[in-house]
Amino acid sequence: MNIWERMEKIDRRWIYLLVAIAVIIPFIIPVRFPVSVTPETKDIYDYIQAMPDSSVVILSFDYYPSTLAETQPMAIAAMNQFFRKDMKVITLSNIPLGGPSLAELVTREVAKEYHKVYGIDYVNLGYKANYVAVLKGMGTSIESIFPTDNSGTPLKDLPLMHKVKNYSDVKFIFDIADNATADYWVSIVNAGYGVPMAVGATAVMAPKLYAYVGAKQIVGLLGGMKGAAEYEILLNKRASAFRGMDVQSLVHFLIIALVILGNVGYFAGRRYRRKAGL
């Protein structure tokens, strides 16, 4: 095997080792590269900042624990901005596996920091099956779909829910999603009831959602960990997404280097074989 063939056929175990090193090194030696803010993120931040204080907002935790690294920082950052503006936050989830627990985890942690009280400043509605029916049904009556909150307390016992009957009482919706629920929020709730909304999505999902940004159906978009890091910078609260950018930078560079290496090996090898008459 000549050098070109070696470059073209690196054993996958070496690649795994290089990825592992690229992931570990930034944790030991943090670099903290400067992160620039894209207009899609800035638009979300500015829109929420311009909203009246104490507005009622919905934060939907539509992500599975598998994508925590990308999505959880978005949810934490959004809760921070909402509570800084003294907004009343209703959380819910359209996915059965972990959504309500993640909402519980994030809201309680951030609420503690801002001394917010459950039932008055925020409520976790939990999960109900069949998200199309849930999103549509909440347009008429939230209580008919969620008679109780996540822990079984009737909504009539929660002061915040006294003034929130349906979407007409909600000023803004922020959906953090790693699946197609974001499309349903846009097509059912934004299109049907006119509630302004924003989406935070995984990097894989983000390209599709640019169509909604272009159509002004969502005010902005957080795309992957970079989007979350940008949001953290705007909030002046650099946390896990910002720290994660070092890892992502190095791994992206590694992948690009591997792609270049593979292509150099491919073309040089092809030329070599042609010359050698193979």
Partner: peptide, 27 residues
């Protein structure tokens, strides 16, 4: 248990993506 296990499963994708990109992305 659930959260770390699911996050770990998803994180292993980065290894496969790096390997797949190296093998598949040819001009």
């Amino acid at each position: 248990m659930d959260m770390p296990m699911m996050a770990t499963m998803f994180a292993t994708l980065s290894f496969y993506i790096a390997s797949a990109a190296y093998r598949a992305f040819r001009a």
